Amino acid sequence: MNDFYVGQQVVCIDDKFKHVSIDQVIRKGQIYTIRWVGMYSHYVDGEFLGIKLEEIHRGNDDGPEGYGAADMPYRATRFRPLVKDRIGSLRKLLAPSPDVPPEEKPKAPVRKKEKV
């Protein structure tokens, strides 16, 4: 599910790139603003949901380890939406949804009275 949109602020949660020695500029814990979001197809990395950031223009990826992509997006999985009210967002998870009917509690079995 895509929860990202242009103009949204996001936090980097993964700045580690396996098998890449060139600095990829993003930093874990840093806040960025999305300028583009969409599906991206790369001949090495395959197809993924990508994000381009206002603060970073990657330019052409044509260096010695590059793949020739122009302003290649980052994988969206490297970011999460910025949440300013963390407790409030957790409360929303606990609140019942108006679209879903409340679950019926199972009734405890009733024990028949014994005559003694």
Rank of each mutant, 00 (worst) to 15 (best):
P109F: 04
K112W: 06
L82H: 06
V25Q: 10
D23F: 05
R35H: 03
V25W: 10
F48W: 10
F79G: 00
K92A: 14
V44A: 10
K112C: 04
Q30K: 07
A76M: 04
H42V: 02
D3S: 07
I22Y: 13
E103L: 11
R58E: 03
I13Y: 06
E55W: 07
Q24A: 07
W36Q: 08
H57K: 14
R35V: 10
M1E: 11
Q24K: 08
Q30V: 09
P98F: 08
C12Y: 06
A70L: 11
D61P: 01
L53K: 01
S89K: 11
P73A: 09
K18E: 13
G66Q: 07
V83M: 12
E54F: 12
P101C: 08
P81R: 11
S97E: 08
P101T: 07
N2P: 05
I22A: 09
R78N: 04
D71G: 04
S21T: 14
R27L: 12
H19L: 15
L93P: 00
N60Y: 12
Q30F: 14
D62S: 09
H57D: 14
E47S: 15
Y32P: 01
K112R: 10
R75Q: 12
D23L: 12
V6I: 14
K16F: 13
P98K: 05
N2L: 07
R86S: 10
S89E: 14
D71K: 02
G46K: 03
V10K: 01
G50M: 04
V116C: 05
R86W: 15
P101A: 13
V10S: 01
P73C: 04
P102K: 10
P106L: 13
R91P: 01
S41N: 14
K84F: 14
G68W: 06
P81F: 08
P109G: 02
D45G: 06
S97W: 13
V10F: 03
P81S: 09
Q24F: 03
P106A: 02
I34S: 01
R111L: 15
D85Y: 07
K112I: 11
V37E: 07
V100D: 10
H19P: 00
K18G: 04
V100M: 03
W36I: 01
D23Q: 05
I22V: 14
D14R: 09
K52P: 01
D15W: 03
A69M: 08
V37H: 04
V116G: 04
Y67R: 14
F4H: 04
S21P: 03
K28I: 08
K92L: 13
R27E: 13
L94P: 00
V83Y: 09
Q24M: 12
F48N: 00
E114T: 10
K28F: 13
N2V: 11
V110D: 13
H19I: 11
I51K: 01
L53E: 00
P101Q: 03
A69N: 03
D3G: 04
A70Y: 12
I56R: 02
